[in-house]
């Protein structure tokens, strides 16, 4: 039996079950923490750093989606320091690849774009990287556009943990990291892909899309996949 604990989130006493993450406790208590790589129903990756929070007594900022809530913890989810770190994290995502929202299939339905708006990123202070990146159109139904991938790894986790196909991995290192299918072959040649489209449904940006959609047309149903995941009890 896991035991009940209490933690303070932005000054409010919240009850939590031992083992729950700060993110889960916050959500359960109606506190919204910005997030991007996190997805309900699959394991947490802690890669995007949008969900950083302050914990009393700890100098560094901690990702709420991977940090377990502990008895007596005092968590702050909003502050100038957090906002500036979150904005920085977003700006670096925009800098890293090529996000031209005006001509993107996901324009208006993109989690990265929406977060930039809600967190007040009106411009990016750093020079753009402008890398030359490929677009994989080898799959009969779907497209992978590396220009818009933020390496959140939702596709990796959903395909592995929900579909059980484990097509995706993140290959390479650092700035050269890329999402790869079947240990790095064109997606269309993947032996493991069942063409279920779950990865496409959960991608937060315009990186994974269905063929045949024009600018602004790509909408998704992440919630449906999350419900499926929760039912399946996939979170390890």
């Amino acid at each position: 039996m896991s035991s009940q604990i209490t933690v303070r989130i932005d000054g409010v006493l919240c009850t939590a079950t031992e083992g729950e993450t700060i993110f889960e406790v916050a959500e359960a208590n109606g506190k919204h923490i910005p997030s991007l790589c996190h997805m309900e129903g699959v394991s947490s990756a802690g890669s995007c750093r949008l969900c950083l929070v302050e914990v009393a007594g700890i100098d560094r900022l901690l990702p709420a989606c991977t940090t377990p809530a502990q008895r007596g913890m005092a968590v702050t989810t909003t502050s100038d320091r957090l906002s500036s770190h979150r904005r920085l994290a977003l700006e670096l995502m925009f800098v890293e690849r090529n996000h031209i929202c005006a001509v993107c299939v996901s324009n208006g339905h993109c989690e990265l774009q929406a977060l930039a708006q809600s967190l007040g990123v009106t411009h990016v202070r750093y020079p753009y990287n402008s890398p030359r990146l490929s677009v994989d159109v080898s799959h009969p139904r779907f497209v992978l556009d590396h220009n818009r991938c933020i390496l959140c790894s939702r596709c990796v986790r959903v395909c592995d943990e929900i579909e059980g196909a484990h097509v995706w991995d993140i290959g390479g290192r650092g700035i050269g990291s890329r999402v790869v299918a079947d240990l790095d072959r064109p997606w269309g040649e993947s032996q493991a892909c069942t063409a279920c489209g779950k990865c496409v449904q959960v991608c937060p940006t315009g990186a994974l899309v269905e063929k045949g959609y024009a600018v602004e047309e790509m909408t998704r149903s992440k919630a449906a996949i999350a419900r499926l995941a929760v039912k399946k009890g996939a979170t390890p």
Binding site: F94, N98, I100, H123, V124, Y128, S130, P131, L133
Partner: peptide, 13 residues
């Protein structure tokens, strides 16, 4: 003017 946008699509070439 803010990001480079469409004109900047040539930036990697």
């Amino acid at each position: 003017a803010v990001t480079g946008n469409v004109p900047a699509m040539r930036n990697s070439i």
